[in-house]
Design a protein around this nucleic acid. Structure first.
Lengths: 120, 120
DNA sequence: GGAAATAGGACTAAATTAGTCGTATTGATT
DNA sequence: AATCAATACGACTAATTTAGTCCTATTTCC
């Protein structure tokens, strides 16, 4: 909702979006910071500051937004990069690992096909 | 994992699957009951009882399995059928309702394309 | 200097999901 | 008839995750 608002209005403050969309201010603030961190939006501090899209809405797909907001968007823990193999004792002889990976790729693809531009 | 096991072995008891896949017995029992309720598997009570596939693995897609196990698989509460309109005060002037519905349909489609047969 | 904004860490509360427990029922075997 | 091994199921508890809050910096315009 925040990105839809931003894409429509060009730029806005957290306070404005919070009021317009009835989103708790503090929560939205966290969301905006995450979007900034990912480089989806740009921020301007100080008085008369706020946020603006850094990338064209059509170039921001929902898969990217998901990953910007959540640190782990995998279907299972073992699918994260890194030390995850040790986390599951069944990792070596797991028989659903491959199909699960395939499923995740397909889902990411379908989520990735929708962009912020399609929310306007 | 349970369905993969069942599809491979033809039939099995909860105890067998639990041991083979290291799934907590009580939890798996609940899962099997849900699958039975949905009509994906058939159950046989009493001694020498157990479960067997009721439908061919190729006809059981993961979307159906999801819905069999979870009572609500919607992206948002307002997308459930029934009284949900009253649950969200913003329902009438929600501006992401339509794209969200479209997204859910696309995701369901991609999940629905994979069947238990593809786990074998 | 003050007001209005972002930045971010630490925390709490709510909701969800995973897992357990107790008991009933069914049905083949002895 | 008794027993044992299985499903059925409701109620509960524990763990995890997610939503939301609070406090304090920092930045920048006026």
């Amino acid at each position: 909702m925040a990105l839809q608002h931003l894409a429509k209005s060009g730029n806005a403050t957290t306070r404005e979006i919070s009021a317009a969309r009835q989103i708790p201010y503090d929560l939205l603030a966290k969301v905006m910071q995450s979007l900034k961190r990912d480089g989806i939006v740009d921020s301007y501090q100080g008085a008369h500051g706020g946020y603006a899209m850094l990338i064209s809405p059509g170039s921001v797909n929902l898969s990217r937004v998901m990953n910007a907001l959540d640190e782990d968007t995998n279907l299972a823990e073992c699918m994260s990069t890194g030390i995850s193999h040790e986390q599951c004792s069944m990792y070596e002889n797991c028989t659903i690992k491959d199909p699960l990976n395939k499923l995740q790729m397909r889902m990411e693809e379908s989520v990735g096909k929708m962009t912020i531009a399609e929310l306007l």
